[in-house]
Design a protein around this nucleic acid. Structure first.
Length: 485
DNA sequence: CGGGAGGTATTTAGATACCTCCCGGTGCTCTAAT
């Protein structure tokens, strides 16, 4: 088959980007495929073109509603009408109608939660699915075991679909995480297509500061002196808000905050304004990022460091997609370690909660369990998921098993955190450190590599400011469309 | 665990010092009430 010809006919492009052809060839050969391609490679083209060249339907599992809506919308702009997103944006009658005529669609976007619903499963199991795509597949490993356990059911769901070929797409996954993904999805004969995670145009800097106030002062300096669009990451919603308003008080314009506690509409609006250069700096929690396709982000500052090197790489990887020089700066104090540790521990159930749950879950409702054991949502989900795995055992044994699982998970997360902290404290090249973590070797050092290699932020090339504000997109209509489906 | 808010004591009427308490991220979906 002449893939180039198909590319030209279907998309009007004359050449593939790096990795795309290889992925499509693997998918068309019928093998399961795990593709790790750098951000901005055009991963969705891989499953779209493959879909056109295969007989049956394509199911795409996506972690975020906004991501799904966006992809469907983009496909519709390109005159692909046979794409639909099945999610909670649909009203009950809309959902019912969509399920009745699901066979009429070629590309079906869906969340792992929705896909686990028995009615939906029945509907999709009647389809003729030729490709099962998992977008942002690292979520399986990053979120599956506690935050979003439905990710762990995808292997079973695949079986129900008649074992179609799988395409798992991600930009950052260590070898360990890739193995995890393959296990959960029950990979059979497969190809792994892995490209380097190195982003040569992003310089890496870690700055140790003595106090919290010292970090704030540094942040103000950077926000005032760095040009171009940037994102500042925080691990607290309150601080993201406070620092955004402090920066505005200091005369820095077009700054706002963004986090998961805000209204969906407001979040979409901020993304749009950032994309069109009406906002320059976003003070955000980790909620900001996935699905942000902005070419000219010039800097990413971490006011709080990420809880793993993978997450860090995802976050800084949003900079410099246009290939121009960009900066990643971590500001840290030794005291910063307590917050992520605390968050990790609070996410999983404590001993007494495990024991209580094991004893009470059969006689009490979910609401009663929540209040009797003072459970958070993620603690409840963890317990609810694993209590069934050991239902044959006596309560003491059951509790012991669940505690073991919790300890393992906690250890796993702490190890990731420790790798991040060690990396920040290291006195050897930062780029080499990251590449080593991903089992890569550095071939060729870029000129502006990292602070250890002699790079100083003050020498950062002054960029052409993206002064040009992109003409008013009709965001209100867009917003309405996204919200109304 | 650390930072911020708010209260109290101290010392002398506005401000500082110290204590205690509280809070802290990521997203999906369903249901019930409006």
């Amino acid at each position: 088959m002449d893939l180039l010809k198909e590319l030209k006919e279907n998309f009007g492009y004359r050449a593939f980007r790096r990795g795309q052809q290889e992925v499509i060839e693997s998918v068309l050969s019928g093998s399961d495929t795990l593709a790790m391609l750098p951000t901005g490679t055009g991963k969705s083209l891989c499953f779209q073109l493959s879909g056109y060249l295969l007989e049956g339907q394509v199911i795409i599992v996506s972690p975020l509603l906004s991501l799904m809506q966006d992809q469907v919308e983009q496909m519709k702009v390109k005159r692909e009408k046979k794409a639909i997103a099945i999610n909670s944006f649909l009203s009950f009658p809309e959902k019912k109608r969509a399920l009745e005529r699901l066979h009429a669609f070629k590309f079906i976007f869906i969340s792992p939660e929705m896909l686990s619903n028995p009615d939906i499963r029945e509907a999709v199991e009647n389809l003729d699915v030729s490709l099962f795509v998992i977008d942002e597949a690292h979520c399986i490993s990053q979120w599956g075991p506690d935050f979003r356990p439905h990710y762990l059911l995808l292997g079973e769901i695949r079986k129900g679909l008649g074992n179609p070929a799988v395409l798992a797409l991600t930009a950052t996954a260590t070898k360990e995480v890739r193995d995890d993904i393959k296990n959960v999805l029950h990979f059979k004969e497969h190809n792994e297509i892995v490209y380097s995670v190195d982003r040569r145009n992003i310089t890496l800097t870690v700055e140790k500061v003595d106090t919290h106030q010292g970090k704030i002062n540094k942040l103000i300096d950077y926000a005032a002196s760095l040009t171009g669009p940037g994102v500042i990451y925080f691990s607290s919603r309150r601080l993201a808000e406070e620092l955004a308003s402090l920066l505005r008080e200091k005369g820095i314009e077009n700054v706002t905050h963004y986090h998961g506690g805000m209204e969906q509409e407001e979040r979409i609006l901020i993304q749009q304004q950032f994309l069109t250069n009406k906002l320059r700096i976003i003070c955000a929690t980790s909620a900001f990022g996935m699905g942000i396709n902005k070419e000219n982000i010039r800097f990413i500052i971490h006011f709080h460091f990420s809880s793993s090197l993978e997450a860090y790489l995802q976050e800084i990887g949003r900079a410099g997609r246009d290939g121009n020089e960009s900066a990643a700066i971590v500001l840290f104090t030794e005291q910063d370690l307590s917050l992520p540790l605390h968050l990790m521990e609070g996410e999983l159930p404590f001993d007494h909660q495990i024991e209580g749950f094991v004893n009470l879950h059969e006689s009490k409702s979910a609401d009663e369990l929540y209040s009797a054991l003072q459970l958070s949502e993620s603690q409840y989900r963890f317990l609810d998921h694993y209590v069934h795995d050991y239902s044959g055992n006596d309560p003491a044994r059951q509790s012991q098993k669940i505690k073991q699982l919790r300890d393992e998970r906690l250890r796993y997360k702490k190890e990731k955190l420790v790798s991040m902290v060690k990396w920040m404290h290291a006195d050897s090249c930062r780029r080499e450190g990251i590449l080593r973590y991903f089992d890569e070797k550095m071939e060729d050092r870029p000129a502006d590599c990292c602070d250890i290699c002699g790079f100083e932020v003050k020498n950062l090339h002054t960029y052409e400011t993206a002064a040009e504000v992109i003409p008013e997109l009709d965001w209100e209509k867009r917003l309405e469309k996204i919200l109304m489906g």
